[in-house]
Amino acid sequence: MYENFAHVGGVLATRLRDLTTDLSALDGPGWWAVVVDYEGKVLCARFDEVRRAPLPAPATSWRGPDPAAWHSSLDQAAYERGVETIRRYIEQGEVYQANLCRVLSATLPGRPDATALAVRLAEGNPAPHAATVRVPGLTVVSASPELYLSREGDAVESRPIKGTGVTKDDLLDKDYAENVMIVDLVRNDLGRVAEVGTVSVPMLCEVEEHPGLVHLVSAVRARLAPGHGWGDLFAATFPPGSVTGAPKSSALRIIDELETAPRGPYCGAVGWVDGDRRRASLAVGIRTFWIAGDVIRFGTGAGITWGSDPRREWLETELKAARLIALASSAPSGEDRT
């Protein structure tokens, strides 16, 4: 078992060399695992040994909290009041859309191996941007379906998700409108650091199937203008538009007013940067667990528009969390899911 490692994109990185909070380090050499909190706390971990390999075998089976032990930073009544507050802000013209999130937390029994949780998620909820990062002081296990930023040289792409249902038939006109709003926001964000005329939208409102639900996904591409590095790219685009709202500045203020717990890696960025090859893939930190000390946390949320129904939005947060929380909770007596 490795004390410190990252597994992302089918690559296993070991032999941790150093840690930094400086995003400009990503413009230099080396392979980096990256975790950036929604609140902007940066952790970049450079590893010396990087190879294609499966997840390491866990030392023990996963033993998570009791399913009833999870506590939400916002209960249903508080969440629904938050939805109504956002609708009033929309009525007043202060914002068009804002993401309202809550954080679930529980105390872990003993010191389970988070690699076993990663294996369980890989089997029970495979995700295109799954990642596990374990470094001193923090463990992140993500089953994210959403691409925040990929990079090939100076070419960058973001694939925002907006719109969630059990099936395609559950998606509403509100979901499509919300997706288009966020695409416009992402276009504007990337346009701040892109060569003039290179921002494009090659995919708009495509339906993607994921375990237990469907999402509406779009793609925005651009080419970085000369002289812009990772610090500039994050300054222009972070936090991701799909988990904030539009206009972003107003949405951020409203989120700060209504949410009662820091989001941490949830709604931040989790992934890798290869400075030698100028390649990268960073996911939006949704469907993401993080562990510090003996506490495990998981975030869930929904995008609120004028057409939002408070109870339906609460149920959307439940839908997004249900499968993952079940996988991370303790197995019924006599059952071992790992």
Rank of each mutant, 00 (worst) to 15 (best):
A131G: 11
T260H: 04
M203V: 14
E91T: 12
V217F: 03
E209Y: 14
F289M: 03
Q97L: 13
Y38R: 10
G93R: 04
A236L: 02
R311D: 09
A331T: 12
L26G: 13
E84T: 10
D66R: 15
D175Q: 11
L147I: 03
M181H: 08
T300V: 15
W290Q: 07
D27Y: 00
V133C: 09
E94T: 05
E208S: 07
A269W: 03
D336S: 04
V220D: 04
T288N: 13
D309A: 12
S105A: 12
W230I: 08
D170A: 15
V8E: 08
S24L: 03
W306N: 06
D309E: 15
W62M: 06
A106F: 09
Y38P: 00
E178A: 05
A45H: 15
A69N: 07
I86T: 09
T21K: 09
A131D: 12
L171D: 02
V201D: 15
L74H: 10
S105H: 08
P58N: 08
K320M: 11
D27G: 13
D309G: 11
R278A: 14
P265T: 05
V50H: 06
G82K: 06
L315P: 00
F238R: 05
P160M: 14
Q76P: 01
G137W: 14
R15E: 12
A118H: 11
G245L: 03
Y2V: 01
V11W: 06
L12E: 12
V8W: 06
T164Q: 08
G303F: 12
N179S: 02
L324P: 10
P202E: 12
L190F: 10
A130H: 08
L252R: 10
L324N: 11
L147D: 06
P65Y: 07
E178W: 03
R87G: 01
A106M: 02
H7N: 13
G231S: 13
V183D: 13
G30Y: 05
R151S: 11
G264N: 05
L19E: 08
A292F: 00
V141K: 06
E3D: 14
S329I: 03
R297I: 04
R312H: 09
A122D: 09
G303H: 12
L319D: 11
H215R: 05
L171C: 03
D175V: 06
F5Y: 15
R287Q: 12
R277V: 01
I304H: 02
L19W: 06
Q92D: 13
